[in-house]
Every structure is written in C-alpha cells, then in structure tokens.
Design a binder for these strands. Structure first.
Lengths: 344, 344
DNA sequence: CTGAAAGCGCTTACAG
DNA sequence: CTGAAAGCGCTTACAG
C-alpha cells in the first residue's frame, strides 16, 4: 500500500498536492496532476480510509441497525436478502460501504442495543458514519424515534419516523391491501375477513385500513369477528384462521397481511377440510418465495423488495450530500394473481 | 463526543494515561485509573475508531465479500439471513462489526469486483480490516483463491481455499447426502437417481459423492442416466426431473442436491401425473423455509445455518488473535424426515 | 498553482 | 506509574 507521501516524493511534489489531485483536481496544474495520477495508478494508490475519515470527519460507510441477537431470536425479515442487494448496490454506486453494526451481548460493550439507541448514535460518530439505515423488526418504533431525533441522518424501513435528518421508506401498504380486497370483492365475495399484523405496527395498520377502505368502496363494512390480529408469522395465521372458521358465519375469503400468515391460514383451512380456493379464497401480502411454491399458489400483493434498499440508499445519500430530509418514500405494490383467490 | 484529551484535562492526567487506562489498565495506578474510568463513563467516552485504526493499523471491522450486482443478478444465497445472524452475533461478541464491501459498478472506482480480487485486498488494507469473510455464489473459486493467497486473514464459506491465513467452513455435504440416500435405500428403493448442483462446485460435488457412497454401501451403483446435473435452482430441478422421467426405467426415488431443485422436481413429477411420495420419493438438501411448506412437506438434509456464520466468525477471530489458520470447519448435517420420502 | 504547517484523535516506545 | 513526543496518513486553511 503506497502512501501519499511516497507518491509525492516520486513526483517531486508535496503531499498536499497529491491530496489536491484527488480532492480538488481543478486546483492543480494539469501537468503535475497527470504526473501524480500516473504514478498513483502505477502504485495502485488509494487514500487510507482511516486517515481520511479522521481528517475529514466523514467516512464512506453507512451504518445498518439490524437487531438480531436481542430479545427476539426468532425474528426474521421476510425478504432481507433482496433488500440488502438493493441497498448495497445503490450505496456502492456512491462509493459507500454498509457497516452492519455489532449489537449488545458482548463483553467489551462495543455493541449497543436498541434499548440504548445512544450507543448506536455514538458508534456512528466514532466511525464517522454518513448515516444510519434502520431495519424494523416490528416493534422498534421508540428506539427509531430516538435515532431520528438524534440528528444523525437516518432512514427507517417500514416504520414512520420524524426528525431533523430522518425519513423513511415503506410500501403503499394501504393501497396494496385495498387492491387485494377489491379483487376479492370483484370475484363476488361479500364475507371477507382479514388477518392483520401486530396492531401498532405501521405496515400492519396500513394494510388493515386498506382492507377497510376496500369494503367501504363496496358499500360494506367488516362483520363482527372478521378482523383478527396475528403477528405476521405463520403460526398466528393458523390460529387466526381457526378462530375465523369457528364463527357462526365464517368468511368465504380472507386477506392475510403477510404471506406467512396466509400460509398458516391455508394449513388451518386444509386441516378443517376446506379446499382453497373453492371453499375459501385467500390472498396474502409480500410475495415472498413461498407464495409461488405453496399449493395452491398464493395470490398476493408484491412489494418492490430491492427497490426498498435502493430507495433507502437514495434517501440517505440525499441527506448526506444535500440537506434536509425529503418526505417519506412510498413504493408502489402490485397485486399478483395466482391460484389461491379463485380468479383462475 | 468527548475526546481523550478532554478526559485527560478533567482528570489532570495526560492523554497517554487515558489511553493506557483503556488499553493496558494494569499499568496504571489504581486511583488514577478509577478516576479516569469514572469521568469517561460520565462523558460516555469511547475512543474514536478512525484515530485508533490509523494509529494501531487495526480496525474492529471484518469485511464481507458478497458479490451482488455483478454478472449474476439473479443469484441468491439459500439462507443468507440466518448465516448473517450467526456471523454478526458471533462477531459482535468480540466487538467486531461486519463491513459489507461495495462492489464495482460505481463511478469512483471505490468498489471492487471479483474479477479483480486485488481491489478487495486493497480495501481491507485501506480500512485496516481484520479479515475477510467470503460468501460463495457458486463460481467464485478462482477469485477466492486469490484472496486466500493474498495473506489477509480470510475464511470462505462453502468453497475450499488454501493460503497462509485462509480457511473455510462447509457442511458435511457428503455425509448428509449419504444419509439421505441411505434413508431411501432403507425404504426399499433401488432405483435412486440424483439431481446434482453445478459440477465443480464444492458442495455439489460432495453431495454427489455422498450419493455414490450410499449406493456403494448398498452394493449398488448409479444406473445410466441417473445422475443429472442442475444448478441448484428450481427450474433446473424441473428440467432434470423431466429427463429422469423420460428414461426407459425412471427412478422411484430422487435425491436433489438442493431444496429448490427438489421443489422443481416435485412440480415436474406432479405435472407428469405422479404422486409424491407414492409414485416417487423425493429428498432435498438445505432445509430452507419452503421445504416445510411445500405439499408434501419435503424430507431434506438440514444445514446448521447460523452455525455457518458462527464458525466463520470463530475462524476469523482465531486468525486475528492467534496465528496460522486452523483446518477447515465441517459442520454436521441432519436428515429431517417429512412427507416427500414416503417414510410416514 | 504549490508548499509548509497544523490538526484530526489516538497509541506507543522512550525517559524519568 | 506517568508525561512529552513522535507518528499513523490524510486534508485544509494560510501564505506566497
């Protein structure tokens, strides 16, 4: 690893000039600039990132807050990989790396926990991170609010935050849910129930309101017992479906606020001797891999998974280079009609 | 963010002493040490990482090489999330963060591509990374070999590498495959075919050899046309199954080297009017989520997914703190019997 | 257009 | 046990 000083000596210039060549090229004479550039290239010189960060108080890293080993060991993001692909690619395009921050549980207190957002904020200062991307695990709202207020640029995924340098990206959950339920209405269903995510969770609540809106559009409203809460995971879908089937007048169609719950519901329906979609129409949300693999293949509302990451990257870069936060980014969703709704 | 100097002034000591309190506590007088510690705690002092890295030439970050936006945009790791959870948690326990390195495609040439492993090696030097974790995307062997030879500590996942400071972790692929096929043999099958992963790929080849070994154990050997190559993805499983069904004497059982391909094979079998497991027994590999969701639920060989990450973290930490590389880590696998093999 | 100097915040021999 | 000093490699006013 060549250093700036070596380049300088080889070129007969000062290190300041070498530095300028890379940071304010227009301020240096063309001849010397090219000489420096050539030598730098030969030696494959690249500025040391630690030194640069120390000096400029800015690194080329964005922090990722993703709570893994904390209270909810079983928690999983429905499409983390796609999200990361989008995020990493878009960040790469700006020359930024993604730093997955260590979380608590270690001996040396280097990691932080969401119970102590200050720890993360400190970490971003110590590493001179450009900002923070916050991946929600369903109930981090308070912690995220603390980040948002801290003043470090941050963008949250799927949770509404507000702060001087904070924004968030989310899908058009209510619109997607509305389209899904409208589709069910269009198929002639009038007894449409929903299995929601955890109350208070932003996408969960939005999907529920989309469900209500679609019923309203149809001049109807949810029957008693037709809104039952799950937690986005499969088992809760099964339990919810069982409750729905126990009603005096069970639904003929169910909109589940996640594919996982839809699958859970499917299992429950099957166990109860119902055939999907003939006896029960089912629509999910997310369009994760299992949706297309399950039998019958699940009709669902697709989210733009890599788009999530890309949008987050864009938003954070805008705050780093530009100024204040822009409004929340709302990604379009798309109804994917497969077999579980009975449209085919 | 308090600096060491502030602590020093407040305590009436030099910055050197403050530094010692954190790095070689035993060399400083107990009273002053506690005074420093107390003040440091009050101000929530933590050493600036950039400065520390610049000075010690060591950061608390491990690089992650994960090729995303390159040639194979469709590539997916079967269980990246679990792997990352294990990796991140185990690294956190040592106070290390995970840096997902930017890849090529950006204007500023900050990212590297696997076609140019040197770029990554430079990056690890510039950031003073402790080492590199290499996630294989099926055909990165040559690039990984270059990393392994570079001298930077690195551990590859699922691809055998060799170098002065390099090792790898993988599952007991051959043992797992052998157990799976032995199970099929135990169920009375004698016409057992296999759908392999891409030839040359380490897990793929190992699984194939496990298949052969199990047949040999049974005093048999693969019939002509009973070994057909896929690429680990679903579509290739479907295609392979179609070829198997076109044989004069089609198999009564199939071991697919991945769950994705097993699902593909299942679809093909179903399309051909076969019932699984009655007409065809099927076993997969990986135990990813879809395995338990598909109908019939897939019998498969489970890998220790978070264990992969944990093992990688352990190996890299050992090389950072200790010295030379230890031998490859081989994780045990486990046969998970569900419905697709007909054992129930 | 370019250089000398100071500074970013820490660590580590070297004296004492 | 502790301080003064040098150094890590870069950037950025400040002069010239």
């Amino acid at each position: 690893m060549a250093t700036g000083r070596e380049i300088a000596q080889l070129c007969g210039v000062s290190v300041a000039t070498v530095s300028r060549v890379f940071n304010q090229p227009e301020t240096v004479n063309e001849d010397t600039r090219e000489r420096v550039l050539r030598v730098a290239k030969e030696l494959d010189y690249r500025p040391n990132e630690s030194a640069r960060a120390l000096s400029t108080k800015q690194s080329t890293m964005i922090g990722l807050v993703w709570d893994t080993d904390h209270r909810r060991p079983g928690w999983r993001h429905p499409y983390l990989q796609d999200l990361l692909i989008g995020l990493k690619s878009a960040l790469s395009a700006h020359g930024y790396h993604l730093l997955m921050l260590a979380t608590s549980g270690d001996a040396r207190e280097v990691g932080a926990s969401l119970a102590d957002p200050v720890g993360y904020v400190n970490m971003t200062r110590r590493h001179h991170l450009g900002g923070l991307v916050l991946i929600d695990s369903g109930s981090d709202a308070e912690a995220f609010e603390a980040f948002a207020q801290s003043g470090v640029p941050c963008v949250a995924l799927d949770v509404a935050v507000d702060g001087p340098r904070a924004t968030y990206v989310t899908s058009d959950n209510s619109g997607g849910a509305r389209a899904a339920v409208a589709h069910l209405v269009g198929l002639g269903h009038s007894r449409i129930a929903t299995i929601t995510g955890p109350p208070g969770n932003q996408p969960s609540d939005a999907r529920l309101s989309g469900y209500r809106a679609a019923l309203r559009d149809a001049g109807a409203e949810p029957r008693a017992g037709y809104v039952v809460a799950g937690d986005f995971y499969r088992a809760s879908g099964t339990a919810a479906m069982q409750r729905l089937l126990a009603l005096d007048e069970p639904p003929t169609a169910v909109f589940a606020a996640s594919d996982e719950m839809a699958v859970g519901a499917l299992l429950a329906a099957r166990a109860a001797g119902l055939r999907v979609p003939r006896d029960l129409a089912l629509v999910g949300f997310d369009d994760i891999e299992i949706a297309s693999v399950v039998d019958p293949a699940l009709t669902t509302v697709a989210q733009d998974k890599p788009g999530f990451g890309v949008a987050a990257a864009k938003a954070i870069m805008a705050m780093i280079t530009g100024g204040g936060p822009e409004g929340p980014v709302v990604l379009p969703t798309q109804l994917v009609v497969r077999d579980s709704c009975g449209a085919r």
